[in-house]
């Protein structure tokens, strides 16, 4: 950093700064006290999706400059301005950055066939097809239309559903309609994990 740069910084053309006008500019070339190497991180506000409380988060990531640069979240903290969590996070929330960067995180659908101990990668279409097939078979087999008194109950007790916890009212309404119309009784959210 040379003196010209310093003038540019603190004086915008040495005439308007009090430092130089009062004759208090260091006479020799201004040496920067030390070098500052600045890292640039993107700051984003978001919500934790791991339970229905929906705590506010501030997330910090790198690599938002270039198109091909890989983005990486390196720090997550509670959002002090958020009316719900007021900056605090629970142990699950405090470990979010490790979830995000976990090597064990699922990136695609996998299946472990009955009797096997190996996980096999499958396509999304295959996964949807299998889930629908298995649900249909199980429901056809175990659906309870009437109870012992002959009253219509339409229950499907052999399958349960784990839903998302961070949903708005409308999402919850649709989820509920979907599950109940199949006759599902056991519904829960991932908030209980």
């Amino acid at each position: 950093m040379d003196r010209r740069q310093f003038f540019k910084l603190c004086a915008c053309g040495a005439t308007t700064s009090a430092i130089s006008a009062l004759g208090l500019m260091p006479g020799t070339a201004m040496a920067a006290p030390r070098e500052y190497k600045l890292l640039k991180a993107k700051e984003t506000r978001n919500n934790c999706c791991y339970c229905s409380v929906g705590c506010g988060l501030l997330m910090y990531s790198y690599g938002s400059n270039g198109k091909n640069a890989e983005k990486a979240i390196f720090h997550i903290e509670g959002d002090a301005d958020h009316p719900v969590n007021r900056g605090a996070l629970c142990p699950k929330g405090a470990g979010l950055v490790d979830y995000v960067n976990s090597p064990n995180r699922n990136h695609f659908p996998e299946v472990r066939e009955a009797g096997s101990n190996e996980w096999k990668r499958i396509s999304w279409n295959e996964a949807f097809g299998r889930i629908a097939r298995l649900m249909k078979d199980d429901r056809d087999e175990n659906f309870v239309e009437k109870n012992s008194d002959g009253t219509t109950v339409n229950r499907w007790l052999t399958t349960g559903m784990m839903t998302s916890s961070a949903q708005p009212n409308e999402g919850g309404f649709i989820t509920h309609k979907f599950a109940r119309s199949l006759g599902l009784v056991a519904i829960d959210t991932i908030a209980r994990n």
Binding site: K37, L38, L39, K40, A41, K42, E43, Y60, S64, H75
Partner: peptide, 17 residues
């Protein structure tokens, strides 16, 4: 497009937004 510039990843006492 809000970015923070600081000397360290976390716990920098002075940052520029």
């Amino acid at each position: 497009g809000v970015n923070l510039w600081a000397e360290t990843e976390t716990n920098a006492a002075i940052r520029i937004e």
